[in-house]
Design a binder for these strands. Structure first.
Length: 500
RNA sequence: GGCGCAUUGGUGUAGUUGGUUAACACGCUGCCCUCUCAAGGCAGAGAUCACGGGUUCGAGUCCCGUAUGCGCUGCCA
């Protein structure tokens, strides 16, 4: 039985890269009929928060990624991890290191490491040398018993090499000489990441580890731990990273909310659309068809079809029209205008509710009307937010008139101030009030007044919706209804609100 | 510094075991449609497949080197 897991650390929001890892794990599990498990890696107690755990779970739920079995909190297993480390010492596969802990500033760790390595190389120091590696067991036991603090390090073989075949990246080899004796347990008794993941993965019976490529080289160390523990080594599949437009690592600090999954929910993404978009980052469907439902994704998915080059997540944070990847936006628009209306309606309802535009009638007497409006206006919307912003005039009298639209379509022609109310009067007499009849009335009126129909059409659009763009005007008349249409045509707002 | 991984148009990707004009999607430009904007249809611009060497009758596809980027190198995860 295939068992995979998603193992995020709850230190902030759910990153889209992590979300994609979760997606791929989930797709693989569903594809092969295995289990998709969730483990919260909260060993870093200072940085882990319950709020973050909640947002991760919400994020998975939003994407439609259901997990099997009970979720595991890594911190619950700390005792087992400690015990395992001690056992390795007893077996001589690990040793106590009594070297005092070296404090590291969190700021430029990477730089420190590189500097240290350079210095060691210059001085000809073998970075693997450790005076405690070969300390006699009884001496080590004695010092430990005396209360001297120590860390536990894995004893890495001096000769040989580690090898594994990554499903995505292929054969991976690493000489043991490149691997330091890694710390398993901190001197304060805290188990470290590499030990914890391995132990938990063993306990959870994980058969395939699917995770970010940033763990590719760490995998050799983890395999060493599996071997020391005498456990079976799972299969590994590493995923290419998702990078920022400048090809730098996508980070919370530098890139802000675009990398947070919740942003997409809050800014009106349809879950299926974002899931679809995410699936296309690093993976491509064999048939070339890119719009794929959940079921189609599962059907088409395979680890072998995952690429090896990092993907760039293209966004322009200061451009409201392109605040996130263009393709993601397009995908969302595509879903909004083509998905079954029944599935879209509840999402629009939520959006209107949040913006206090929802009326219970839409679920009752005006259900059909509501459904028609949504179907009419969804054609040119990009996000669910558009229903309450650009679509506001359909649901409320309290909507803004776009100044540019008013100037272009109304104020430019002074005579409209007289003509629009006359047009309203014509519409009062249309029966039944359908798009076709409204059109006839408007065109007749245009002929009689010797104006172009377009003048009235565009002016009407702005009067009724506040905007210069939108659906076919006669459909708008019909959906707005006679009363509202006539009333808005008689409105003096353009002249009251803007200087002519 | 060491080690590892990657490198196909602006972005995401296809390119079977090397073999005609490098394919698709997003974006972009133009045209059609038209009451606007989208959508849709049509047409198009944009890649000497990072660069340099090889191997070969022939390389985006194989080999070597260089560059660039990313990752790891921590008593972080």
């Amino acid at each position: 039985m295939t068992r995979v897991r998603f193992a995020p650390s709850p230190t902030g929001y759910l990153h889209i890269g992590a979300a994609r890892s979760a997606l791929f794990n989930w797709l693989y599990a569903r594809k092969v009929g295995g289990k998709f498990l969730l483990r919260i890696e909260d060993t870093d107690l200072q940085r882990s928060t319950d709020e973050s755990t909640r947002s991760i779970i919400e994020g998975l739920e939003w994407l439609g990624l259901d997990y099997d079995e009970e979720k595991v909190f890594q911190s619950d297993n700390a005792d087992k991890h400690r015990a395992a480390a001690r056992k390795l010492v007893d077996e001589g596969k690990a040793y106590r290191d009594f070297t005092p802990k070296e404090e590291r500033g969190d700021a430029n760790v990477k730089q420190d490491i590189a500097d240290r390595a350079r210095a060691h190389a210059a001085e000809g120091i073998d970075h693997r040398s450790n005076p405690f590696r070969d300390l006699a067991k009884d001496e080590s036991d004695r010092r430990a018993a005396a209360g001297e603090p120590f860390a536990i390090r894995l004893k890495v073989a001096r000769e040989g090499a580690s090898h594994f075949a990554d499903i995505v990246y292929g054969d991976q080899d690493r000489a043991y000489s490149e691997i330091e004796d890694l710390v398993l347990l901190r001197s304060d008794g805290h188990p470290l990441y590499n030990l914890s993941v391995v132990l938990d993965d063993i306990e959870m019976g994980i058969t395939h580890v699917i995770r970010g490529q940033d763990h590719l080289t760490n995998t050799h160390k983890q395999i060493l731990i599996y071997q020391a523990l005498g456990a079976a080594v799972p299969q590994f599949a590493h995923l290419p990273l998702i990078l920022a437009p400048n090809k730098a690592k996508l980070s919370k600090r530098k890139h802000g909310e675009v990398v947070s999954l919740t942003t997409y929910r809050d800014r009106g993404f349809v879950p299926a659309a974002f899931r679809n978009f995410l699936a296309l980052l690093g993976w491509s469907p064999p048939e070339g068809k890119e719009i794929l439902s959940k079921e189609e994704l599962i059907e088409a998915f395979s680890l072998e079809a995952i690429g090896r080059a990092n993907a760039v997540f293209n966004f322009h944070e200061n451009d409201p029209r392109h605040w996130t990847d263009d393709k993601a936006l397009w995908m969302n628009a595509e879903y909004i205008r083509t998905m079954p209306l029944d599935e879209l309606l509840p999402m629009v309802k939520e959006e209107l509710r949040a913006e206090k535009l929802w009326r219970e009638e839409y679920d009752d007497d005006e259900r059909e009307w509501f459904s028609n409006v949504v179907d009419l206006i969804r054609q040119r919307f990009f996000t669910l937010k558009d229903f309450s912003s650009q679509g506001r005039a359909y649901f409320s009298e309290d909507f803004d008139l776009d100044e540019a639209a008013v100037r272009k379509n109304i104020l430019k022609e002074a005579k409209l101030r007289e003509l629009l109310p006359q047009l309203a009067t014509r519409l009062d007499q249309v029966e039944p009030f359908t798009a076709a009849n409204a059109e006839t009335a408007l065109r007749t009126f245009a002929e009689e007044t010797q104006q172009k129909a377009g003048l009235f059409i565009n002016a009407s659009r702005t009067m009724l919706t506040g905007q210069s763009v939108g659906p076919s005007m006669f459909d708008v008349f019909e959906i707005m209804g006679r009363e509202r249409s006539a009333m808005r045509l008689r409105s003096q707002r353009p002249w009251n609100e803007f200087q002519v």
